[in-house]
Computed example of a mutant assay.
Amino acid sequence: MRLLSQLLVILFTLFTLFTPFSAFAVNPDEVLADPALEARARTLSAELRCMVCQNQSIDDSNAELAKDLRLLVRERIKDGDSDEEVLDYIVSRYGEFVLLKPRFNPKTVLLWGAPVLLVLAGGLSLVIFARKRVGKPTGSKLTPEEQARLNELLKK
């Protein structure tokens, strides 16, 4: 009985490890007939944020707005828009927040530069802290008995 329960735990663990963490929310009626266009649509959908869920792409979300955006992306692709034109169109309607990976521009310099600035500030503070500690003695002064014993040992 114990062996069976251990086997079930192992099988469950393996199953969960090799199962994709998120299922796509794209419905069969949304899929484009041309596989190349559908691949472009899926790539673009993965880059756009669901405005309802906010932590999911529209490709992963089941919200009605996400479905509408997926259909809009596919419609724009069918109309011959490039990937950049599709993204520009969506951003013009919903703002930069709709992009899961914001573009690098003057408004987002701090967003992109903050990690670098934090690493530099942390490194600088470590250097300053290490330099302050270099000259400081560690421990306490020796008692007269310890000093005499040390001197005695050094003479030998």
Score class of each variant (00 low, 15 high):
M1K: 13
L3C: 12
L7T: 14
L8Y: 14
I10C: 13
T13M: 13
T13I: 15
L17Q: 07
L17I: 06
L17S: 06
F18V: 07
P20H: 06
A23K: 13
A23D: 13
F24R: 13
V26N: 03
P28C: 03
E30F: 04
E30S: 02
A33P: 04
E38A: 01
E38D: 06
L44E: 00
L44M: 00
A46Y: 05
A46P: 00
L48I: 04
L48H: 01
L48G: 02
V52D: 11
Q54I: 09
Q54Y: 07
N55V: 10
N55F: 10
Q56M: 12
I58Y: 03
S61V: 01
D68E: 15
L69C: 06
L71Y: 05
I77T: 01
G80R: 02
G80D: 02
E84L: 07
L87T: 03
L87I: 07
I90T: 02
S92E: 08
Y94N: 06
G95H: 05
G95R: 05
E96A: 09
L99T: 00
R103E: 08
P106C: 03
T108S: 15
L110H: 11
L110S: 09
W112P: 02
V119W: 05
G122Y: 09
L124D: 04
S125R: 12
S125M: 12
F129H: 10
A130I: 04
K132S: 12
K132L: 10
V134T: 10
V134Q: 12
G135P: 00
G135R: 05
P137G: 06
T138L: 14
P144Y: 04
A148R: 09
N151E: 15
E152C: 04
K156S: 12
